[in-house]
Design a binder for these strands. Structure first.
Lengths: 263, 263
DNA sequence: CGCTGAATTGATTAACCTCAACGGGGGTGG
DNA sequence: CCACCCCCGTTGAGGTTAATCAATTCAGCG
């Protein structure tokens, strides 16, 4: 793990949603933190816990996992650069923050975020925008669970993860690690593990996505995005990737690659 | 409509989640606003609209309604005292703010909320808490759609509405207007209108709730809460109502009434 | 009185769940 | 090194929930 690793993750994330100056980035470098590791399905933050630290995800995936439902519904998934518990004084009632696969996190004192927000309007805006995006994400997920079938849900989940990874400079080739179990996917999509299995198989058969040995390869992004009815507007990205839900019929969409310029 | 009507609605709401001083309440009385009326299913705020005003709901119900799904998924429902678009610089992508039944709203300039937040830490906290509650609500609703059947979903919706109404001094007798159509209920619960009808009938047959001529009467709150697996913690109320999901077997729960003290 | 949107009902079909069983891979202890 | 085990993925069969289609009733309203 190289120097400034934690700083870079956060900076990449913030820069993806707001315009930051050199001075802003400089503020971030003063971030105090301690690094910790967790194994898959370990609990980082338990329901109702209070903490004066926030959890900056550096590597792997985290999720909020409901404790009241028998299946343990997953309500959000996070990628490196995210801060799942940023705005919360306490963790959401009835939900645990859990690791999906092995993860590396940085615990950052909460006052640091208040401080940089008070020192830089741009950063303050970016942090506020993070909360908005979180809420928009939840709304979007709600629409998925409420009105779409399992194939669409799963496809949408992979679309969102792929895009959010790309935004922070990961998964450039549409390949990314997926240490989730199929039961994890089921818990996120609100379906049974058995049906999750059959859904994955269907995606494989359609040749849009392959999930083997804890690694996902999106083989046909436009098709996947179309299948998922994926529209990335809700992520409020500064440089949105073409979703190509309906590419011109005369040409297969190859614009996806070229329309993306990551820092 | 009496003097201070709009002010009272907001004050009641804020007081239900935070401790406000006389000085705090005094700040609220200076709220500038203009009142407007909308008929059922009219759109108050269209997807992507920008506005320098927030929408304080005074009477009736509002909801965010998704525009991308054919069924028009409802992602949140609001009761008098709520400010659906408080934290947003713009309305959520792909969602319209719509009236459920006839409504009265007060449009309040956004700067007013920034101002009172900067003048009073208690109000600032209360407003922040509103956002947290909003997110918690979305998470909770997500769990419903992801892991519970239609009967539970519908029951939960009525539980939440009933409780939120009571918190702002309405529906004290567990009766409240429900100008929703059954299709609205369906859109909120992520089920078909036909199935919504059968779900309501089931609730009626179980004798927990009656919905007739645009009016709902909860006839057996403990049973309804149990059916809905309703736990009001996520609403972060200062004086939570007993949810009585599992009342002592020796006594039917009558504590519901007595445990609530509204201003 | 007829019109219109909403509520209701029945019948059929599709999506998904549950139960149950089996196979493979990676760890662990002998 | 092998035997064992456990978790995970996979498959099949049967049952349940809810969607869809279509028709009928009902209520408010000009």
């Amino acid at each position: 793990m190289q120097t400034g690793f934690a700083y870079t993750k956060l900076a990449n994330h913030l820069a993806s949603i707001a315009e930051l100056s050199e001075a802003d980035l400089d503020l971030l470098t003063r971030m105090p933190f301690t690094i910790d590791h967790f194994a898959s399905h370990e609990t980082i933050l338990r329901s109702g816990d209070k903490s004066d630290h926030c959890c900056l995800l550096l590597q792997g995936y985290l999720c909020w996992r409901d404790t009241t439902s028998s299946m343990g519904q997953i309500t959000s998934v996070y990628v490196p650069g995210d801060v799942p518990d940023l705005p919360a004084l306490r963790s959401p009632a009835g939900a645990n923050l859990k690791a999906l696969g092995n993860v590396v996190v940085a615990f950052v004192p909460q006052w640091f975020f208040h401080e940089i927000a008070s020192l830089s309007p741009a950063i303050s805006d970016a942090l506020a925008l993070m909360s908005l995006i979180e809420a928009a994400s939840l709304r979007h997920w709600l629409v998925n669970l409420g009105s779409r079938d399992s194939l669409t849900r799963a496809a949408h989940l992979f679309c969102e993860i792929a895009l959010r990874l790309r935004v922070v400079g990961l998964a450039r080739d549409f390949q990314f690690p997926s240490p989730f179990t199929q039961s994890d996917l089921a818990a996120a999509c609100g379906i049974s593990p058995v049906h999750a299995n059959r859904t994955i198989q269907s995606l494989r058969r359609k040749d849009v996505l392959h999930w083997q040995s804890k690694w996902v390869t999106v083989t046909d992004w436009p098709a996947l995005a179309r299948l998922a009815r994926f529209n990335p507007d809700y992520l409020h990205l500064r440089q949105p990737m073409a979703s190509s839900p309906r590419p011109p019929a005369t040409a297969t969409s190859v614009g996806v690659e070229t329309s993306v310029q990551l820092p």
